[in-house]
Design a binder for these strands. Structure first.
Lengths: 101, 101
DNA sequence: CGATTGGTTAGGCATGTGCCTAAGTATATT
DNA sequence: AATATACTTAGGCACATGCCTAACCAATCG
């Protein structure tokens, strides 16, 4: 998942899809890149679960998988929890020191 | 920054440092990896700003740079904002349709 | 001072990644 | 049916990445 987000093109794709579903053509338009290369990026994102896609006729429409984005975000929250826990321990220690004083 | 977080070893390093500062030796102990390889990971993280390090004598101590972590987290928040904005627009549209009905 | 410890530098390798071009398939339009 | 459009498949290349070993430097310990 983080591997998938390592590439700036892929991050931009995800960002764009948060604005709403889009076709492969729409998504690829702003990028000066050969289509197969671009689609490879989509595949990485889809493989990681961050987006889904559906082909109707000859048009493939991509959508962001927000639950999966939330999974990635949760990692940061877990870091914050660790850090906060550390501050809580520091606070406790400071209180202990004050009591002893 | 996301590039730096793409590697599981590096994510674990960051996670560990959120528990508190640690020396290179301490950090590398759980990993079955040659020290130079491990230090290369630290360098990637430091280069990306996610951690800082300071050498005192022969001991290098690493610390997480929480502000920088917050920068990465902010990207997810910006996605959420886009998504929320989209829902707001949908709500408005639904209300408009209801009014017309 | 010699030995040990903690880290750094240098060079190398196998694999992965991000891009390309060419050719092809399927669907839609004229 | 011919043409255009949207995507897919296949193969390739240059560079990046994640690991290794060997050698070295600096600080600390006994």
């Amino acid at each position: 998942m983080f591997q998938a987000l390592a590439d700036p093109t892929r991050r931009e794709i995800v960002r764009r899809l948060c604005e709403g579903p889009a076709t492969v053509s729409e998504l690829s338009a702003p990028f000066k890149m050969a289509l197969p290369s671009f689609v490879q990026h989509l595949q990485v994102l889809e493989q990681s679960g961050l987006i889904t896609s559906e082909k109707v006729g000859r048009v493939r429409t991509c959508r962001v998988a927000l639950e999966r984005i939330a999974d990635a975000e949760a990692w940061f929250e877990s870091l914050r929890a660790l850090w906060d826990e550390r501050f809580a321990q520091l606070d406790t220690l400071l209180e202990t020191l004050q009591d002893e004083k």
